Simulated assay, not measured.
Amino acid sequence: MKILFVCTGNICRSPTAEGVARRWLVMAGLGELVGVDSAGIQGYHVGEAPDPRSQSAALRRGYDLSRLRARKVEPKDFEEFDLLLAMDRDHFQYLRDKAPEGKRHKVRMFMSYARMVRRDDVPDPYYGGATGFDAVLDMCEDAVQGLIDEILPEVNRRRQSVS
Rank of each mutant, 00 (worst) to 15 (best):
S14A: 02
F5V: 04
K98E: 13
A39M: 10
I148S: 06
N156H: 12
A135C: 08
L59D: 14
H91C: 14
D120Q: 13
S38Y: 12
D88A: 06
V46F: 07
F81N: 01
P123H: 03
V6E: 08
S38P: 04
S38I: 05
Q42I: 11
I41Q: 08
F81D: 00
E79Q: 10
D88I: 06
R159A: 14
V26F: 03
R22A: 03
M111Y: 11
V6H: 05
R67Y: 09
Q55P: 07
C12N: 06
D142Q: 13
H105W: 13
T16M: 14
H45Q: 11
G40M: 12
I148G: 08
D142V: 09
R89Y: 08
K2Y: 01
Y44H: 07
D124M: 00
S14I: 07
S66C: 06
Q42G: 15
G146C: 04
S66M: 12
G40P: 14
D120T: 15
K98C: 13
S163L: 12
P123T: 01
V122H: 11
G19P: 03
M1K: 09
M1Q: 10
P75R: 06
F92I: 08
H45C: 04
G102C: 03
V144Q: 09
V73G: 03
M111R: 14
R22I: 01
T8N: 13
L147T: 06
G102T: 07
N10R: 03
A39D: 10
M111Q: 12
L68N: 02
D37P: 05
R13W: 03
V73E: 06
Q145D: 13
K103R: 15
L33K: 10
L84E: 01
D82A: 14
T8D: 12
V20E: 03
Q160L: 15
T16L: 09
D51K: 13
T16Q: 08
H91A: 09
P50E: 08
R159S: 07
F110V: 06
V46Q: 12
T131G: 07
R115F: 10
L147Q: 05
G31R: 03
L33H: 14
L30P: 02
A58D: 09
G29A: 02
P123M: 01
V6S: 09
D64T: 03
G129H: 11
R61F: 11
Q55N: 11
L68I: 14
K72R: 14
G47R: 07
Q42Y: 15
A86R: 01
D90L: 08
E101P: 10
R157D: 11
L65V: 03
R69T: 00
S112T: 13
T16V: 15
D51Q: 10
T131A: 15
V36A: 07
A130W: 06
V20M: 02
R53F: 11
S14C: 01
V117C: 10
D88W: 10
I3N: 08
G29V: 00
D138K: 13
L30V: 00
A135D: 13
A17C: 07
E154V: 11
V107R: 00
D51Y: 13
R104G: 15
G9V: 07
F133T: 01
L85E: 00
S54M: 03
V144A: 08
S161T: 15
Q42F: 14
R67Q: 12
I11L: 04
V144K: 06
S112C: 07
P15W: 05
L68R: 08
R158A: 13
S56P: 06
A130H: 00
G31M: 04
R60M: 12
